[in-house]
Amino acid sequence: MKRLPLCLALAATVAFAASAMAEELVIGTNGKPGNPRVTAAQLFGSLVEQWSGGKYTVKVAHSATLGDDRQMLKSVRLGTMEMTVNSDGPVAEIVADLNAFGLPYLFTSLPQAWQVLDGEIGKSIAAQLDGKGYVLLAWWDNGLRKITHVSKPITSPADIEGMKIRTPQSQVTIDAFQALGANPAPLAFSELPAALQSGVFEGQENPLANIYSSKLHELTPYIAKSNHKYEMAPILASKRWWDKLSKEDQDLIQQAMDAATWYNRGVFLISDAELEQKLKDEGAQFSEVDTQAFKDATAGVYAKWEEELGDIVPRIQEAASNAAQ
């Protein structure tokens, strides 16, 4: 049997040793393959692996394989998972001020929401998360949301009166749909397709990126362009893990996350028009809604949450108004 030349054998040995010594970082998400949260996490992983020279490898645990959002948040807090691409509802259970971002019709565009997230209010929430055992690495996007129904188009609040609709684990979203006369109930995103197939719900609400990547339009083909609320996807790291890193490694990971953040946001920004056509080609039927009627029906949600949260509600309304100018 031929022997490898000594230089090749040494190179193979060094490469194997480097691979064996690489530290694996795990970033968990409930997103399905093809979802912008997953593709952005994969980009982040590639950048970390390249820029660290192989010191780190990154495993993207998608499709809630390591638990739902609440379970992943617990794992991150305990330090058994390094990072999670989470949903704002469960994170708002940790820092209540985050609920304000989910108020109905607060934002009319994605860049408007980003400006507020990247400003003083977003920094204040990040500081509160730090005190709870989390390091906020980024605010990724989860889009402006649409309502889907299994059997009929939706154009006004009357069309969803009594509707059994799945919402994310977000109390402010539940409040908004109760104000609209629907019958909302929260459910983990990973369990949604099965619940729709079994008839537990008549519909759900999500951005087009989530609807398309999870094939929810095959179950609820009527899509109302309601844009009733905005959601972000906070990227949280374990403070226990983060504080053990060198400043150099923290900077490397943060720079990779910053690059992946603008990719994620860019995909959401340009995807709606493209996805609308794809969804139509696959049988989805879109409807416009009476936006003012939806706004009027949900106006009382602001009063409830201002009573609960205090001045964060008028402050975020002012910040959103300033960002829109």
Rank of each mutant, 00 (worst) to 15 (best):
A256S: 15
F201N: 06
V38Q: 13
S287D: 05
W241F: 15
I121C: 03
H228E: 11
A20H: 13
H217C: 00
F177N: 00
S214T: 11
A324H: 05
Q71D: 05
G54V: 14
A209C: 10
L245Y: 11
S87N: 14
S156V: 04
Q178P: 00
G89V: 08
A61H: 05
L66Y: 14
K2E: 08
T13M: 13
S287H: 07
D141W: 00
V85N: 15
L78V: 11
Y56M: 10
L219R: 14
Y134M: 04
I27T: 08
N206R: 08
A303R: 11
G300Q: 14
S246Q: 06
Q112D: 01
A260Q: 07
F268R: 02
Q250D: 13
N99A: 09
G79F: 09
D141S: 14
P153T: 04
G79W: 08
Q112N: 04
A138F: 01
P221R: 09
E308V: 12
K244F: 03
L245K: 10
G310H: 07
G54L: 07
L25N: 04
G89P: 09
L106Q: 12
A113T: 05
C7R: 12
P153S: 10
N322A: 15
V289S: 03
Y302H: 06
E288D: 15
G283N: 06
Y212P: 00
V85L: 15
Q250N: 08
Q197N: 08
A323L: 07
G67D: 11
P186F: 07
S213N: 11
R315G: 02
S19Q: 12
R145D: 03
L4F: 06
A41V: 03
R70G: 04
S63T: 09
G45W: 08
G181W: 03
P5C: 10
L236M: 12
A237L: 11
A297S: 06
I154E: 04
Q317T: 07
R166E: 14
W139E: 01
I154L: 05
P234M: 12
S151G: 13
T148G: 03
L10K: 09
P111R: 04
A9I: 08
G300W: 04
S238G: 08
K295E: 05
S46P: 00
T57M: 05
F189M: 09
W140T: 02
K247A: 13
F268I: 01
A273S: 14
N264L: 13
W140V: 02
Q115M: 03
Y222I: 01
I165R: 02
K278N: 15
D68Q: 11
K164P: 01
G131M: 05
L192W: 14
G53C: 14
W114V: 04
G54A: 07
N99V: 05
Q115F: 00
P153Y: 01
A113F: 04
E202N: 13
S238N: 10
S151W: 05
M232S: 14
K229A: 04
M232Q: 13
W51P: 02
G300C: 08
K132L: 02
A17V: 15
A297I: 01
